[in-house]
Design a protein around this nucleic acid. Structure first.
Lengths: 208, 208
DNA sequence: CCCTTTCGATACAGCGATGTATCGAATACA
DNA sequence: TGTATTCGATACATCGCTGTATCGAAAGGG
């Protein structure tokens, strides 16, 4: 019930942010579905009154949390795909992107939690698909200005962008399990190189 | 406390199987973590007494459930990778594998639930990594006998097998969200073709 | 066909989480 | 600084789920 625009806003904004931060940590540690509202409040140093004053359900908080962080990551990726004067230098972009992605294990956990959540709720699924489509489109736009031609197998820049996302998702799964970020990055680099160029990568070796 | 080997086994085995089947359906619908023991018992038509007589916790049941189904899938994949007299016909194998995978949306849901569960429990993670390593090894063994040479970018058959798994995982994520199995299969086919051959795929187009 | 053993249903105690209603304290604005 | 308003803490009632303990019934062995 805010009249036109709420009167008190400072404390509230801090509280909300604190709750979101604490929720992120708790979700990462235990997983959505194994987390109670009380745990989050405890972690944030508030009582449940504060929670219910800011959110109406755990789902709502989870969604807000995901959107916040996902947008942040999307910006980072966009930044890593910056064009130079002549267009996109694919190998360099691959390096930059793989360096910015796959950094925060906790984020991967929360992200995957959100995925399974979305996979069961059509409403949430649509929202997540839109996010992904935007990201894919951004990638496709940049790839369209690549210095070197893309392999034809994938069917144009759109297919190539799709492949990039799939590779990222695929590598993520392995990283979730073995927690070896360095290996995941080099491996993602190889994959993207294999997909986006016509065969001149740096064949290191993979164990495990 | 079974004495050497239990005396009554028939009813018990049926009960256990029924509980596992019901659990699969309930887990698929609601997600592990949003499921109570009681729900599973209700779905299976038993009381909680039956559950506690067969399992000691929800985690234990979940693990048993996953192992059962995962082994089943692994067998199907192994079958789809059968060699012909001269070795492995890669394009044909790709077709067969993509047809057997990505079939059951419910299984993808449960599998992903299990993934996030494993990602937080080192014990479970190790177990899942072993499963994956076995599967990857099986793939690598077959790829080693491919008719046509694999691209060098990935670093040998081992890297290629890794790429196959990553592609599968990546495509799975998209399929979880859009539930378009047909598209997922053709797309997986393209990806695998792009990764395992040196550039002679069937470039159809991808929307959405 | 009876008898022993095992399985699964029922009853019980207790915990933990939820959501609401109320009240004191902090905050913005005049 | 005074005051109206908002925010968040506390208290309360309730519910659902868990795990155990007990008991009747089914099932296999002799």
């Amino acid at each position: 019930m805010q009249a036109t625009t709420g009167r008190v806003t400072r404390r509230r904004a801090r509280t909300r942010a604190n709750l979101l931060d604490a929720a992120f940590a708790v979700f990462a540690a235990k997983g959505f579905g194994h987390v109670s509202i009380e745990e989050i409040c405890d972690a944030a140093g508030y009582s449940r009154g504060a929670f219910y004053s800011n959110f109406s359900s755990l789902d709502e908080l989870f969604f807000a949390l995901y959107e916040e962080r996902a947008d942040l990551i999307a910006d980072q990726v966009a930044g890593a795909l910056a064009l130079d004067r002549e267009g996109l230098d694919v190998p360099a972009a691959v390096d930059r992107v793989t360096d910015v992605l796959l950094l925060d294990h906790d984020w991967l956990l929360v992200k995957t939690d959100f995925l399974v959540h979305a996979a069961r709720d059509p409403e949430v699924a649509r929202s997540l698909l839109r996010h992904r489509a935007r990201l894919r489109q951004a990638i496709a736009d940049r790839l369209a200005r690549a210095h070197t031609p893309l392999p034809a197998v994938l069917g144009g820049t759109d297919g190539a962008a799709r492949a990039v996302v799939a590779a990222y998702d695929g590598v993520t799964v392995q990283l979730l399990l073995d927690r070896d970020a360095a290996r995941a990055r080099t491996w993602l680099k190889h994959l993207l190189t294999a997909l986006l160029t016509d065969g001149s990568g740096t064949p290191d070796h993979a164990r495990n």
